[in-house]
Design a protein around this nucleic acid. Structure first.
Lengths: 157, 157
DNA sequence: TCTGAAAATGGACCTTT
DNA sequence: AAAGGTCCATTTTCAGA
């Protein structure tokens, strides 16, 4: 399924993580490969799922989403049906950017993006108070987003 | 700086969040705008910073980054220099995908992506134990990544 | 909105290892 | 076979009328 990635692949991925619109001839210049070779590799990387998708990063501030909130949630029952239902409910909310099921003191960690506190309030009613399987939750308000993204470490180091 | 966004803009952003490689003529079809109009809008959205950048999402699993870890950190001193130094140290680590400075019981929330526990161990030594300003930290290991991304809610609903 | 030039993508085909 | 390179057709972008 996934043929092993060589140095070219890693460099290409690193470049595309930074700017997915770098033209293939430029990529070729920086990694020392012809445009066609780059093209083939990108095609392969997409087909194999190494590149999951291409996306535009939209500025939260430009859209008024000035608040990022991190919520930790403990559930009542970790029975699989209950858990899946809860998981799905969380993931389905557009304001939930990220949802992780975790081991430790808490069961879920959620990242919300909202316009103002009241909006978050509404969401807690809907997702937490409105869900019988949610036992308790804790809210952390982000005062600054020092680093965001999903870039992976790709180059040696 | 940021002219108000109309319904066309929002639809375009929504489409590009999903797939940044959708050609402009297709975008035009779905939002009912000519290719040129779409082109102009995208140019404007980029220039105004509404679209921050275009990026390729790389599969963590394909690269062996099977572990996502969430760490909460409390610092000794919230004095600004100390804080900034700590913040910078966290953000500079390639394994730190996200770093938020938060209000509440903790001061920082970090999202790590690593290949295995040992790697995380090394990072805690480097970033936490090796930083005199870190008072304590707590680790949550993600058992599943139910939702990831940075997509913003854009369409009414 | 339409038209056309320039740029970028992606396939065909050949060569090298 | 597997992967690179060159060349060319098609698609896409993007600016001017």
């Amino acid at each position: 399924m996934t043929s092993p990635l060589d140095g070219y692949d890693l460099k290409l991925l690193a470049a595309l993580q930074q700017d997915a619109r770098t033209p293939q001839n430029e990529l070729g210049d920086t990694v020392n490969l012809s445009t066609a070779a780059v093209n083939r590799r990108l095609k392969r990387l997409s087909e194999e799922g190494v590149i999951e998708r291409y996306t535009a990063v939209v500025s939260p501030d430009a859209l008024g989403y000035g608040l990022t909130i991190i919520a930790m949630v403990e559930v009542e029952s970790e029975q699989i049906d209950q858990l899946d239902a809860t998981r799905r409910a969380f993931a389905a909310c557009p304001h939930v950017q990220q949802c992780y099921y975790v081991a430790g003191e808490w069961d879920f960690v959620l990242l919300f993006v909202v316009q103002h506190m009241e909006q978050y309030n509404g969401l807690t009613r809907e997702l937490f108070f409105g869900n019988a399987n949610v036992k308790r939750f804790k809210t952390l308000v982000a005062m600054s987003r020092d680093k965001v993204g999903q870039a992976l470490p790709l180059l040696p180091g």
